[in-house]
Simulated assay, not measured.
Amino acid sequence: MLPDWKPQPNTEYSNLFYYDLLVHGQGVTNLITNKGMVWDGNNPIYRDEFEQHSYRGPEDDKMDGAIDTVEEGNILMNNHSLIASNSQDNMKALEDMLGIVTR
């Protein structure tokens, strides 16, 4: 998010996501700013204005949490792309998105 982003009155915000490289990067501290590595922690996942919807990727069980292999990095990259896909693995998120925008 841009540093000067401000929520608009009477607007609802939702964040739908899989655990991906960007989410993982928020858990890595920038030694200079002491904030998350992605946009200095200024992300929907950490903003109270956003309703959070987290999903498990189809290969999440293959990760041990350390994210120290190429395979685990690839899973995070795949998760990053999954949320914007029409893959069968993303159907729950797509159904939720439809429900959010039509409520």
Rank of each mutant, 00 (worst) to 15 (best):
residue 1 M to P: 03
residue 1 M to Y: 03
residue 1 M to V: 07
residue 2 L to C: 07
residue 6 K to Q: 11
residue 7 P to Q: 08
residue 7 P to A: 05
residue 8 Q to V: 15
residue 8 Q to I: 15
residue 8 Q to N: 15
residue 10 N to E: 08
residue 12 E to P: 07
residue 13 Y to E: 09
residue 13 Y to M: 07
residue 15 N to K: 00
residue 16 L to W: 12
residue 18 Y to G: 02
residue 19 Y to K: 08
residue 20 D to M: 05
residue 21 L to P: 01
residue 24 H to I: 01
residue 24 H to W: 09
residue 24 H to A: 03
residue 25 G to C: 02
residue 25 G to Q: 05
residue 25 G to S: 05
residue 28 V to W: 10
residue 28 V to E: 06
residue 28 V to N: 05
residue 28 V to G: 04
residue 29 T to E: 07
residue 30 N to D: 15
residue 31 L to K: 02
residue 31 L to S: 03
residue 35 K to A: 12
residue 35 K to C: 09
residue 36 G to Y: 03
residue 36 G to F: 02
residue 36 G to M: 04
residue 38 V to S: 01
residue 41 G to Y: 00
residue 42 N to H: 15
residue 42 N to W: 09
residue 44 P to N: 05
residue 46 Y to F: 12
residue 47 R to M: 09
residue 48 D to C: 01
residue 50 F to A: 04
residue 53 H to P: 05
residue 55 Y to D: 01
residue 56 R to T: 04
residue 56 R to H: 00
residue 57 G to P: 05
residue 58 P to Q: 10
residue 58 P to L: 11
residue 60 D to A: 11
residue 60 D to K: 06
residue 65 G to N: 07
residue 67 I to G: 06
residue 68 D to C: 02
residue 69 T to H: 03
residue 70 V to M: 08
residue 70 V to P: 02
residue 72 E to T: 04
residue 73 G to I: 07
residue 73 G to L: 10
residue 75 I to S: 02
residue 78 N to Y: 02
residue 78 N to W: 03
residue 79 N to K: 04
residue 81 S to G: 13
residue 81 S to E: 12
residue 82 L to H: 10
residue 82 L to E: 07
residue 83 I to F: 13
residue 83 I to K: 14
residue 84 A to M: 15
residue 85 S to Y: 12
residue 86 N to P: 02
residue 87 S to K: 14
residue 89 D to Y: 14
residue 91 M to T: 09
residue 92 K to A: 14
residue 93 A to N: 04
residue 96 D to L: 06
residue 99 G to W: 10
residue 100 I to V: 09
residue 100 I to Q: 11
residue 101 V to L: 10
residue 101 V to W: 06
